[in-house]
Amino acid sequence: MNESGRKLLEVKGLTMDFGGLRAVDSVSLTVHEGEIAALIGPNGAGKTTFFNCVTGIYVPTKGDILLHPQGEQTRRLNGLKPNQVTEMGLARTFQNIRLFGGMTVLENVMIGRHCRTSSGIFRSILRGSRVREEEQQIVEDSYYWLNKVGLEKYVNEFARNLPYGAQRRLEIARAMATDPLLLLLDEPAAGMNPYETSALEVLIRRISEEEKIAILLIEHDMKLVMKISHPIYVMEYGKKIAQGSPQDVRNNPRVIEAYLGEEVEA
C-alpha cells in the first residue's frame, strides 16, 4: 500500500472491440510496486476482457500496456503471446478455475516453473546431472509455494480432487511459481464461503508483504476489496468511471449508482 512506489504496470487508453461491440473503452490504470490494486464493476463491465488484453489472450484494438521492471527497460506488452507476457513477469489466475486436473498438485505448480527453467528435449532424454539438478530445484521451489499457500498435505493428490477453496489457492501457487512481478487475480474469492474468503485475504496480504510483488485483482466481494486493496478502479459498460482509495470509491455517487447501490448505506 505504498503510494510513493515506482510505477510497475501502466495501461493507457486500452480499447478492445469485438466486431461492433466495444467491450473496453479507453481504460487507463496504473499499478505501483508493492500495492494491491483492485478492479471492480458490475457483471459484464469488461473487467475480465481487460485482464485478457493485459495478459495477451486478446490483442487490444488500441492503447498501450507498458511494464516497467526495476532496473530494466520499459516493455510494451501489446501483441505479445500470453506465454511471453508471463515470461515478462505477469502471472494470472482464472475466474473459472483452470487447473490441470489430471496432474498432481505438485506438478501443477511445477508447470509454473517451466518458463524459468531451460532443459530441452535432448538434455531431458540424456538426463545429465544438470537436468537432474534443475528438476530437483523445480520440485523444491514448487514445494515452497505449496507450503506458502498451505497445500502441502495434498502434494500427490490429483488437482481435480481438491476442494474448491484449495483449488483457488493452488491456482495462486501455480501463478506465483512463475516468479512474477505482478500477480493478476481474476475473482479469487468467487464461490468461496466467508471462512475461505478470510483465509484468502490473509494469503493475499502475506504474498504481497513477503514477496514484495504487486497484485491486481478483479473482485466481486466488496468487503474483501475494501479491506485489502488501495487504489480501486471501477468500470461500467467498458468505461472507467472512478478510481481512488476505498473511501473515495465508496462515496463516489457514480459508483453507488452503478454498482454498490444500497449496499453502502447498509
Binding site: T86, R98, S119
Partner: peptide, 26 residues
C-alpha cells in the same frame, strides 16, 4: 524420460488445458 521431464509436463499441461498452459508461460 521425456514424460517425466519439463517437456513432458508441458505436453500433459497442454492436454489438460490449453489456455491455462499458455498463461503459465509455455
Amino acid at each position: 524420460r521425456l514424460k517425466n521431464s519439463r517437456i513432458g509436463r508441458a505436453w500433459i499441461a497442454l492436454r489438460e488445458d490449453e489456455v491455462a498452459c499458455v498463461a503459465m508461460g509455455i
